[in-house]
Design a protein around this nucleic acid. Structure first.
Lengths: 124, 124
DNA sequence: CTTATATACATAATTCACTTATGTATTAGC
DNA sequence: GCTAATACATAAGTGAATTATGTATATAAG
């Protein structure tokens, strides 16, 4: 899923489901780009993780697909099913509980969790 | 490391290092209890994950040990080396960056990350 | 035109942090 | 005397990821 950080493990399904919820129907490559943008290039999805995960979520009935041909290119659009929408809520709630728990264990002061996206970064 | 949540993966070293920093020298079993307390029983370290990780951190020079005999019981106390202290800072900073990044990707509103430990839970 | 890069999908082999299972031994509670 | 808690340790197995590979179209640069 990513070059660095062991921490991303276990977050892939949550990320894909939530980004699909927020953006409506999207195709695989588009998802990688959206996540790259949202994370300021900190999370770079690899195909080896992405496609098997999408296939799995589809097989489980969380996602439905629609194949669209653009010229000679084939795109497979994914969107949430009713079950999928329910799963997103669970997963995001679980993630929030996780960070609150970790915040207590690691004794992280509140100001450390900033409202500002990517503070202190430089352009260019 | 835990029954539920795939999310804990990759957090074990960070947890152990930070709890050792905050509590000084501790032994393995004590660490499992401290983490259980701090997490309101949400994070239950298993020995199969705990001991190999402690051994690895010791082998890497991040922890030093001291064996103490209490009656006929043997306790192995772990504490941070100078290198270990430096590693804690890195790891905690990395974790904070991780949750800020995830907060942006998942579009989690600030109030969701509460200053109150374990809101809404019930006793007993 | 040719080459490199970006777009777009897919799967197989491998890795590695974890879970599960197992083993040993002391101490405390009923 | 039995069970649970304390206290350490390691081996086998799992599964979500990485890495590697494959196919094919579109575009920009030389």
């Amino acid at each position: 899923m990513m070059h660095s950080s062991e921490l991303l493990k276990g977050t892939l399904q949550t990320i894909l489901l939530k980004v699909l919820k927020d953006n409506g129907r999207m195709y695989g490559y588009e998802l990688t780009q959206r996540v790259k943008d949202l994370s300021d290039a900190r999370i770079l999805l690899t195909e080896g993780a992405l496609y098997p995960t999408l296939h799995k979520l589809e097989a489980e009935g969380m996602l439905k697909t629609e194949v669209v041909t653009i010229g000679k290119r084939v795109r497979k659009y994914y969107s949430l099913t009713a079950e999928g929408k329910s799963l997103v809520k669970e997963r995001v709630a679980e993630f929030i509980e996780f960070i609150n728990t970790m915040g207590n264990v690691l004794q992280i002061p509140q100001p450390a969790i900033s409202g500002t996206p990517f503070p202190g970064e430089k352009k260019g």
